[in-house]
């Protein structure tokens, strides 16, 4: 029964289990966070941040598409039922994403002592985990990490505003890479290698 439930969750959310697709965006996040921080050793220091962002975004999109072909070739394709996740999509586009964007603005402009994005993004990750079959527990650890970030400015560990946002962007990149790899490992664990004839 549990196996069947897991199969159902993977089939319904197959795209979301293709974790390696996320990795280029994670690398992009780390790269861009370093660009924003401009450390002395960084070779691209002084170049336009916007130009760098467009370039790394283009590279990440190309890699995303190539990795998609790898999944098609090795795992096959699944065509979802239209409207199956209508409620989840509505919550995502009308509540989660606007709230996540707004929280970044609040943290950037108002510089509150509680890092609001940590709370909002943590809640969004829990909602994502709950709406995709509750199988991938690493998302709970990621949510806990986000919640923990909320207290850093109040504890005086990181200055609110740009320093906190830079740290968040870099961490987000790392989390994308890690979550992507863990999603992929989970997929590989659930789906089995093609069996030869007995």
């Amino acid at each position: 029964m549990q196996d069947l439930e897991r199969m159902r969750a993977v089939t319904e959310n197959f795209f979301l289990w293709q974790g390696l697709r996320l990795v280029p965006f994670g690398v992009m996040g780390i790269f861009y966070a370093i660009q924003l921080a401009e450390p002395a050793w960084w070779p691209l220091r002084g170049l336009s941040n916007e130009l760098i962002l467009v370039a790394v975004l283009a590279l990440a999109c190309t890699a995303f598409s190539r990795i998609g072909r790898y999944y098609d070739r090795n795992f096959g394709k699944v065509r979802g039922i239209p409207g199956r996740h209508a409620r989840r999509d509505a919550v995502k586009w009308w509540i989660a994403y606007p709230a996540m964007g707004a929280s970044l603005f609040v943290d950037g402009l108002l510089k509150p002592r509680i890092f609001v994005s940590g709370l909002v993004w943590g809640a969004a990750v829990v909602a994502y985990w709950a709406s995709t079959g509750r199988g991938r527990r690493h998302y709970l650890a990621i949510a806990a990490l986000f919640f923990a970030l909320a207290g850093l400015p109040a504890l005086g560990l990181v200055e609110a505003g740009k320093p906190m946002l830079s740290l968040f962007t870099g961490l987000l990149g790392g989390i994308y890479v890690l979550a992507g790899i863990l999603d992929h490992l989970e997929l590989v664990r659930i789906v089995r290698p093609v069996r030869e004839e007995e």
Binding site: L4, M7, R8, V10, T11, E12, F14, F75, G76, K77, V78, R79, G80, I81, P82, I190, V191, R192, P193, V194, R195, E196, E197, E198
Partner: peptide, 24 residues
């Protein structure tokens, strides 16, 4: 049948990998 009830259609390869059955 349970896998197929969760999607519009699936490739043979996907079914094979998810169920762990041999091709034959």
């Amino acid at each position: 049948l349970t896998v197929l009830s969760s999607c519009r259609s699936a490739d043979f390869l996907f079914l094979q990998r998810l169920t762990g059955l041999s091709k034959g």
